[in-house]
């Protein structure tokens, strides 16, 4: 009797556990298929990010640039010291433990100077690129979407702007307009000049992209489905154009940093009391003594320009390759 009871309990328990394990299994299976499903859902954005990750060099660029950003913007919050801290006793000191980058002609800590100059260079580059990108997208979109005479007119205009060689005109504009403004307005002026001279490339690309997109059958399909014009632009054209804009803006940013530093080096860019990497190098090369005997004055800003522009170019290149449809499964 006892045995039977035990047996029954055993059997019951067995049944229960079988039931339990079945439920558990079903749950697991459901979870698995959900996860499996999620794994395979690869949005186009994720595809680009995956491609990007594969390029080690792009990641390196990302890392370097992030580092520079942190040093330029975040660290100074914690270690504020007046960059105009003039100390006549410490003129022209070579790099040492107190002054990592040495000091300049007024005894100011050069590391500070370089970081501050960096902030300006990055800031000017960023705003200039924003202006140029905005103008490029605006002109390119209108030309591409409306076509016809408007397109013709806008592209002729772009051609004329493009015919002006960049550097001489930038210098001329800076000199012609700049003497009326003080230093901080000058900074704005430089941003604007770089912006209005640099939009033509993007405008052309966007116009081309829109023209080809309009021919794509999914645009005809959208019309056939009865989608309003406004929604055609918002939901179909813009998402397909965003990637070019990002690549162009990234590479444009790198270019603008270079141009700004070149302008400042020649004396037509950022001026005192503001400072930028280019301006620092200008002062550093004012005399050949400086060049030969105080190389830290020009090496640090120079290397930083190089590293920044290089890293941004790495990122831009990586993005461009990642977006290239030849890499996607077709």
């Amino acid at each position: 009797m006892e045995e039977n009871k035990n047996k029954k309990v055993e059997l019951e328990e067995k049944e229960l556990s079988v039931e339990e394990s079945k439920a558990a299994q079903a749950l697991r299976e459901e979870q698995l298929s959900k996860q499996e499903r999620d794994d395979v859902v690869i949005s186009p954005t994720k595809v680009i990010w995956n491609n990007f990750k594969e390029k080690k060099i792009a990641l390196l660029g990302l890392g370097i640039f992030a580092f520079i950003l942190v040093v330029s913007f975040i660290i100074p919050i914690f270690t504020p010291s007046d960059i105009n801290d003039i100390d006549a006793t410490k003129i022209y000191q070579a790099p040492n433990f107190t002054n990592w980058f040495g000091t300049d002609k007024l005894g100011r800590d050069y590391f500070n100077r370089v970081v501050t100059g960096g902030k300006v260079s990055l800031y000017v580059g960023a705003i200039a690129t924003t202006i140029a990108t905005f103008l490029g997208v605006l002109v390119g979109s209108i030309a591409g979407f409306y076509g016809g005479k408007i397109d013709n007119l806008l592209m002729r205009f772009a051609e004329i702007v493009r015919s002006f060689p960049f550097l001489p005109l930038a210098i001329t504009l800076s000199a012609a307009l700049g003497s009326r403004y003080d230093a901080s307005q000058k900074m704005l002026l430089i941003m604007v000049i770089l912006g209005i001279l640099g939009w033509t490339g993007l405008a052309r690309m966007i116009r081309g992209m829109i023209l080809s997109l309009r021919e794509q059958e999914f645009m005809v399909a959208a019309k056939a489905l009865g989608i309003k014009d406004r929604n055609q632009i918002l939901r179909h054209i813009i998402p397909n154009v965003v990637s070019i804009i990002i690549v162009s803006a990234t590479l444009g940013f790198a270019g603008n940093i270079l141009v700004e530093s070149g302008l400042s080096f020649l004396g037509f860019g950022i001026t005192d009391p503001d400072t930028s990497w280019g301006l620092l190098i200008k002062d550093a090369t004012a005399s050949s003594t400086n060049v030969q005997w105080r190389p830290w004055l020009w090496i640090f800003p120079g290397v930083l320009i190089l590293l920044t522009v290089l890293s941004v170019n790495f990122i831009g290149d990586g993005l461009r390759d990642a977006i290239d449809p030849r890499n996607n499964g077709r």
Binding site: F218, A221, A224, G226, K228, H236
Partner: peptide, 23 residues
């Protein structure tokens, strides 16, 4: 536009007739 729900079209090219950015 509102009448388009009653008349539709199926395209030849299965590659370019679907917006690659949409599910």
């Amino acid at each position: 536009r509102p009448m388009r729900t009653d008349m539709q079209i199926i395209f030849q090219d299965p590659y370019s007739s679907l917006d690659p950015k949409m599910t």
